[in-house]
Design a protein around this nucleic acid. Structure first.
Length: 262
DNA sequence: ACACGGACCTGAAGGC
DNA sequence: TGCCTTCAGGTCCGTG
């Protein structure tokens, strides 16, 4: 199948979290996508013009792909969901809609070679599933940090791409309290403690499982989360008789087991 | 420099 | 029934 190019781009409002970049439509029409990659929670589409389309889904963003039939095309245009904010019409006939009720998403266009220096990308820490992310790297990044361990893991400069749910799940898996100071996973000179290796490994595990669950949802129907959104319910760690507790950290909910997470 | 809290936004859920 | 409040999430910005 040949590559599709952008035939048209319809902006149905002037902004999401921020305004769309200048000449957004003009810079996309006629381009094909050479490569589609990801960095942290950002999608990066390299265009034939060598510009990069940068997309963040925020919390509620999603794409849908529709391939209208000729019969549909001949009738009146489909009623659009009011939260379809961007509609891409492709040369293949596919209609790709970006839907985002809360509009925390983001789209930007980066000039060639600007991806590495773009403000939001340049500050990101390592990819958690990359070999370079391990207990030693994490301990080094947490050195001297007075903030909570949970706060540090949510900091995209420490490790990129973790959100509230997976941080909470990883800390439970690692048996570490979200309330302890981030610096406690390293010695004062930066040597990783056992806890640093445990939390790094736990992060990789919860992410790999989440990806597998996405690929084979039927295999995991009953599992879901071990602590997230389980306040008052029993801890799921084998042989632990704790009860999941909820607390607020930085205005966000933390769920953890005070018995097995230290 | 770092740490923290509030703002942004909508829909769902709970209270009265 | 319906109105009002609260909460959720990721990032950014202002303040201390």
């Amino acid at each position: 199948m040949t590559e599709a190019s952008f035939l048209d781009v319809e902006l149905r409002r002037p902004d999401l979290r921020r305004r769309f970049p200048r000449r957004f439509r003009q810079r996309l029409v006629g381009q094909t996508v050479l490569e589609l990659t990801r960095r942290a929670k950002y999608l990066l589409a390299t265009l034939s013009s060598r510009e990069t389309l940068l997309i963040h889904l925020g919390m509620s963003g999603s794409f849908s792909v529709d391939t209208p039939t000729a019969a549909q095309g001949a009738s009146a245009p489909a009623q659009r969901d009011p939260h379809d904010h961007v509609v891409f019409r492709m040369s293949s006939g596919a209609v790709i809609a970006y839907n985002d009720p809360r509009r925390f998403g983001l789209m930007d266009l980066l000039r060639p070679h600007d991806a590495a220096t773009h403000p939001v990308l340049s500050r990101l820490g390592p990819e958690p599933l990359s070999p370079s992310f391990d207990g030693a790297a994490l301990a080094n990044a947490c050195r001297g940090k007075t903030t909570s361990l949970k706060g540090a893991l949510l900091d995209q400069r420490v490790v990129a791409g973790l959100g509230n749910i997976y941080v909470v799940e990883a800390l439970h898996r690692a048996g570490l309290s979200p309330r302890r100071r981030a610096s406690t996973i390293a010695t004062p000179s930066g040597v990783p403690r056992d806890s640093a290796h445990r939390v790094a490994a736990a992060i990789k595990q919860v992410l790999r499982e989440a990806i597998a669950r996405q690929e084979r949802p039927q295999a995991y129907r009953s599992s879901r989360f071990h602590v997230y959104d389980r306040e008052g319910q029993p801890c799921r760690r084998a042989h632990c008789d704790g009860v999941v507790t909820r607390l607020a950290q930085g205005g966000r909910s933390t769920f953890y087991c005070p018995v097995c997470q230290r």
